[in-house]
């Protein structure tokens, strides 16, 4: 009887140690391999971390989202939210974005600011992809713009870069990890369905991230900053979304 109790005690002790060591090891590995999102704290943070980590492991860096034929383009492209109403943005609209410039700075060798015409002269990419809103609706549209990876090459983004932060003319800012920032279908889009990007879709320039939900594709861009830490931005959660209860990573 005594021996059995001792054996049970040993077994319980060993499995507890193994469990704690396993969880500790998993957390260490996840941190080390960049599988922990900036909004990982709290009860819901457990779910955020599992989802982000699992998708980063299950989805390869290069896989492209499906691209459709021109015949699949939706006749109406739904919009969420309204264009910024601050004077700065309204002045840009009034001037047809002639004075607009995109600043690219942070961990880059050559901080640069681009006019719309300069961006439009860079090599471009067009793709017809599905846009899914977290609310549940979706539409297909063609997006034309500069691949973000090309722009990051141009300004000499540092190998130490871990995130790219997108700052717009309104409050809905965001960021991407380098996997999505360097993805071939991640565009700085100035065109939609063969025309200039409409104001309500984020004119003059918006982000397009094909493998995440719509709210990650920041509109009305003003500045892009390359960084190794999200702590200095907002409340340090990676984007405006987690500050009001949404996920930073929206791959599902």
């Amino acid at each position: 009887m005594k021996r059995i109790a001792r054996r049970a005690f040993l077994r319980a002790g060993l499995s507890t140690i193994a469990g704690v060591a396993g969880i500790g090891g998993a957390i260490y590995t996840a941190r080390h391999r960049g599988l922990v999102p900036p909004d990982h704290s709290g009860l819901f943070g457990i779910g955020e971390t599992l989802t982000y980590g699992a998708q980063r492991l299950l989805v390869s860096r290069q896989t492209l989202a499906r691209e459709f034929d021109r015949s699949h383009i939706s006749t109406v492209a739904e919009v969420n939210g309204y264009p910024p109403e601050n004077d700065q943005y309204l002045r840009l609209v009034a001037n047809n974005f002639d004075d607009w410039r995109l600043t690219v700075d942070g961990l880059v060798a050559r901080p640069t600011s681009f006019s719309l015409a300069e961006l439009q002269r860079l090599p471009s990419r067009s793709q017809i992809t599905l846009h899914v809103c977290e609310e549940g609706w979706s539409f297909i549209a063609e997006w034309t713009g500069v691949p973000l990876s090309l722009l990051l090459d141009l300004v000499g983004a540092s190998p130490a870069a871990r995130y790219v932060v997108f700052l717009p003319y309104d409050d809905w800012w965001g960021s991407l990890d380098m996997v999505d920032a360097l993805h071939d279908q991640t565009l700085l889009a100035y065109g939609m369905n063969g025309r200039d990007l409409p104001t309500e879709h984020g004119a003059p320039l918006r982000l397009r991230v094909a493998r995440q939900l719509g709210y990650v594709s920041i509109k009305y861009l003003s500045r892009i900053t390359v960084t190794d830490s999200l702590a200095p931005f907002g409340r340090g959660l990676g984007s405006a979304a987690p500050e009001i209860g949404y996920s930073w990573y929206a791959g599902i």
Partner: peptide, 21 residues
């Protein structure tokens, strides 16, 4: 999982068997 834009990029059959997102 089929509704996930990341997973359906990697595994298109997830949504394709139903006819889409």
């Amino acid at each position: 999982l089929a509704m996930s834009p990341a997973l359906s990029a990697q595994y298109p059959f997830l949504a394709a068997v139903f006819g889409g997102h």
